[in-house]
């Protein structure tokens, strides 16, 4: 289906099996490493989902954190006000993020370049303002503490970092695997044709607006689910997760990692999270640093960390 052959599935699945084996023992390294890895994984899915828009469809977005936040708030509010199980709520949060994706995606279909960037930026700010000002629903800038954890299954209690780690690991590997298949599918190739040249794509029959909307729906869905998991993991959220700075943080992962490669953004998420941990005492300069890194990468290594890794692997093989 969708041009995904068994060959492709098997070839890709191998990598995820290796990743699974490498990542299973992480909790042995202690709570701190486990915690950081969980956050890296949630950001990795978000950055990879953004890559579907930025890297594959060629649609820059400066508001991706908004969808992460919509997922987080949706699942949180459903759980706290209506007793919806987070297992279901997280999924509904993904859907709600997609609804917001539609609201942004459809009106911005015709926009390109800086106009698109500004409209996505504006949309992110609108979501942030809503979270701050709808205090009856969101408690405004104070945020929402005491979010219920993922309900336990049998003896497993997901308040434990280790237990949650394996949920996050499963979610991450499955999500990135699905996105990876998407990029290899017919839809992936159609999205790439839009990135390369919209007019040429139209002239060979591509329904460009429709597929741009698909890209928005898919990218925002995965950002929303990541947000939901984040909320039930940290058990506290605030409008801070939807700021422009946060969107730029995610975009930095995608771009510095190497956009249009899917795996690059995953590497970007790991490297930037580590950087953030190392630079704890310079936190106020972090956006400055990310901004400079983006410019440096775009200028000297447009294929990003992924490109650098490939380059090194090639040298080693020779």
């Amino acid at each position: 289906m969708l041009g995904i052959t068994k060959d492709i599935v098997l070839r890709i699945a191998k990598y995820y099996l290796v990743a699974l084996i490498l990542l299973i023992p992480i909790p042995l390294a202690g709570d701190y490493i486990t915690h950081v890895t969980i956050l890296v994984m949630l950001y990795a899915v978000t950055a990879a989902s953004l890559d579907i828009l930025v890297g594959y469809t060629g649609r820059l977005s400066l508001g991706h954190a908004a969808f992460f936040a919509v997922g987080a708030y949706t699942s949180t509010l459903l759980a706290m006000n209506w007793g919806v199980s987070p297992w279901v709520g997280i999924f509904l949060g993904g859907l709600m993020a997609s609804v917001f994706g539609l609201i942004l995606g459809v009106p911005s279909l015709k926009l390109r370049g800086p106009y698109l960037a500004i409209s996505t930026l504006g949309f992110g700010i609108i979501v942030w303002l809503m979270l701050i000002n709808l205090d009856w629903l969101t408690r405004g800038p104070l945020g929402i503490p005491g979010i219920p954890p993922l309900p336990g299954i049998g003896p497993i209690d997901f308040r434990s970092k280790v237990a949650f780690y394996y949920v996050a690991l499963a979610f991450t590997l499955i999500s990135i695997f699905l996105l990876h298949l998407l990029t290899k599918s017919r839809i992936g190739k159609i999205l790439m044709s839009i990135r390369e040249d919209e007019d040429a794509a139209l002239s060979v029959g591509v329904d460009v607006p429709l597929f741009k909307v698909y890209a928005f729906l898919i990218a925002t869905f995965f950002a929303g689910i990541s947000g939901g998991l984040y909320a039930h993991y940290l058990r506290y959220i605030s409008p801070e997760i939807s700021t422009l700075g946060e969107s730029i943080y995610i975009l930095s992962m995608t771009i510095i990692g190497g956009f249009g490669t899917l795996i690059g953004p995953v590497m970007g998420a790991a490297v930037l999270s580590l950087l953030q941990e190392l630079l704890r005492s310079y936190l106020e300069y972090r956006y400055l640093i990310y901004g400079m890194l983006i410019i440096l990468v775009m200028k000297f290594f447009p294929s990003g960390i992924y490109g650098i890794v490939q380059f090194i692997l090639r040298k080693v093989r020779e």
């Binding site: 190739k189 044709s193 390369e196 040249d197 794509a201 329904d207």
Partner: peptide, 22 residues
Amino acid sequence: KPFLGMSVLDNLLVSIYATKGV
């Protein structure tokens, strides 16, 4: 207006998918 970043084969596959169904 070739799809520069795609293989020659993929350039044509896009046409086929787009007209025959995805």
